[in-house]
């Protein structure tokens, strides 16, 4: 059965306060090369069949909030 990976990320203009905390934690662990961390969501879908228009609709209607988030997806198998 085809699977779809949906990636949801906070819009770049918005402060990711959790990402900022993780940035600081990585730097404290000695990873000084890390300038910024942004945390998103990875959502796996298993679908009967792949219809891109419907996947987009799922993202727009529930999986992502267009006010604050961007989304992308890839179809696997």
């Amino acid at each position: 059965m085809p699977r779809v990976r949906v990636y949801v990320t906070l819009k770049p203009a918005l402060l990711d306060s959790a990402g900022r905390t993780v940035t600081s934690s990585l730097q404290h662990l000695g990873f000084e090369e890390v300038n910024d961390v942004r945390i998103g969501k990875l959502i796996h879908l298993e679908v009967e069949k792949v219809e891109e228009a419907r996947i987009k609709e799922m993202c727009q209607k529930l999986l992502a909030n267009p006010v604050i988030e961007d989304f992308s997806y890839e179809v696997i198998g």
């Binding site: 906070l10 402060l15 306060s17 959790a18 909030n65 006010v67």
Partner: peptide, 17 residues
């Protein structure tokens, strides 16, 4: 109410976590 579209905007994690 913001998620439902009745009110504009959204609410995110507090700035200081």
């Amino acid at each position: 109410l913001t998620e439902s579209g009745l009110l504009p905007g959204a609410l995110l994690k507090n700035e200081k976590q």
